[in-house]
Simulated assay, not measured.
Amino acid sequence: MAVFTPVSDDDARELLKHYSLGELISLRGITAGIENTNYFLATTQGEYVLTLFEVLTYEQLPFYIELMHHLAQKGIPVPEPQTRRNGERLGLLHGKPTAIVTRLSGGYEPDPGATHCTLAGATLARTHLAGSSFAMQQPNLRGLGWWRETIPKVLPFLDPGQAELISAVLEEQIAFAQSGLYGELPSGPAHCDLFRDNVLFDGTYETPRMGGFIDFYFAGCDTWLFDVAVSVNDWCIDRNSGAFIDEKLQAWLRAYAQVRPFTAAERQAWPLLLQAAALRFWTSRLFDYFLPRPAQTLKPHDPRHFERVLRQRRTAPAPALP
């Protein structure tokens, strides 16, 4: 359940006085999600999502909120934070940072086909190019620094083979990040968590239409190739083995490259970035599984899934970028 802080109709009416979004029609809690309180908010002017942030602080939120606003203004299909009468896009409700964003159409596709992959790949490339003019800077907070801090905490829970693998990959990634090749990779604002459940589609399964990208609250500045690797490691794999499904992978990568062609440095770095993306989510799932936050009520994901993906990326040749 993702309604941790109750919001009444009267609360919503009072909040809407700070916006020019019309009068309240309805307010309905959203059960999906993990960390925030979310409501569908309908007004006389449109459909929105009201979010009360339960973990991120008021000071931590501007990067994410302003990035979404910037992308929406550039025509990227993302939830657009609405501007209050005072010119700001963040407020407070029941002491929690609060934002109202546009509600995107569609739903997520749990078993995407090649056409879904094509749409997602092209849209991510457009997102990267649109984000290149975004002025604010924030690193990927679940990047290398976080891996170096977190992996020692989960090592005691691993068997010797797992500990050897995760330690070896971490050392390789530390060396890679210090290399000249890494410095040549195009970078900028990145979603960093573009799993299939963070993309909405309209239409039918056979003829889908892009609804948009959601949940930017792991976004940060990173190499764009890392963002691609995170995505295809979820969108284009056999769930049981972690191996790539070539038709989906090629559809995804070709669509991306038609919008933003890959560079020579990216072609060379691709195998290491695929491993980095798998390491990031193996690490976070190990941490959530063995060291959950006291208030965490949802069942954590099985960390062995991304262990399988990482082992696949180290043993199977990386498919060449188009």
Rank of each mutant, 00 (worst) to 15 (best):
residue 124 L to F: 00
residue 73 Q to L: 10
residue 66 E to Q: 05
residue 127 T to F: 00
residue 159 D to Y: 02
residue 67 L to S: 05
residue 72 A to L: 11
residue 139 P to N: 11
residue 68 M to S: 06
residue 101 V to I: 14
residue 109 E to G: 04
residue 109 E to M: 07
residue 148 R to D: 14
residue 80 E to T: 14
residue 81 P to N: 12
residue 71 L to V: 06
residue 159 D to S: 09
residue 77 P to K: 07
residue 89 R to M: 12
residue 122 A to K: 07
residue 66 E to S: 08
residue 146 W to V: 09
residue 152 P to I: 13
residue 66 E to I: 05
residue 163 A to T: 07
residue 147 W to Y: 12
residue 99 A to M: 05
residue 142 R to H: 15
residue 170 L to K: 05
residue 93 L to W: 07
residue 163 A to H: 09
residue 103 R to S: 09
residue 163 A to Y: 01
residue 94 H to S: 12
residue 127 T to D: 00
residue 64 Y to G: 09
residue 65 I to P: 00
residue 133 S to I: 07
residue 161 G to W: 07
residue 85 R to A: 13
residue 122 A to C: 04
residue 129 L to Y: 03
residue 65 I to H: 02
residue 151 I to F: 03
residue 92 L to A: 12
residue 96 K to N: 12
residue 164 E to F: 13
residue 139 P to H: 11
residue 149 E to Q: 13
residue 79 P to F: 09
residue 155 L to M: 07
residue 91 G to D: 12
residue 97 P to C: 13
residue 99 A to C: 03
residue 71 L to I: 04
residue 133 S to D: 13
residue 122 A to G: 11
residue 95 G to P: 04
residue 143 G to H: 00
residue 109 E to T: 15
residue 119 L to K: 01
residue 80 E to A: 15
residue 64 Y to A: 06
residue 169 V to G: 03
residue 144 L to H: 12
residue 99 A to D: 09
residue 165 L to M: 05
residue 142 R to S: 08
residue 124 L to A: 01
residue 81 P to C: 14
residue 102 T to F: 09
residue 118 T to G: 11
residue 73 Q to R: 06
residue 120 A to Y: 01
residue 90 L to Q: 03
residue 104 L to C: 12
residue 119 L to E: 03
residue 95 G to D: 02
residue 108 Y to N: 10
residue 111 D to M: 13
residue 129 L to T: 09
residue 140 N to V: 09
residue 155 L to T: 12
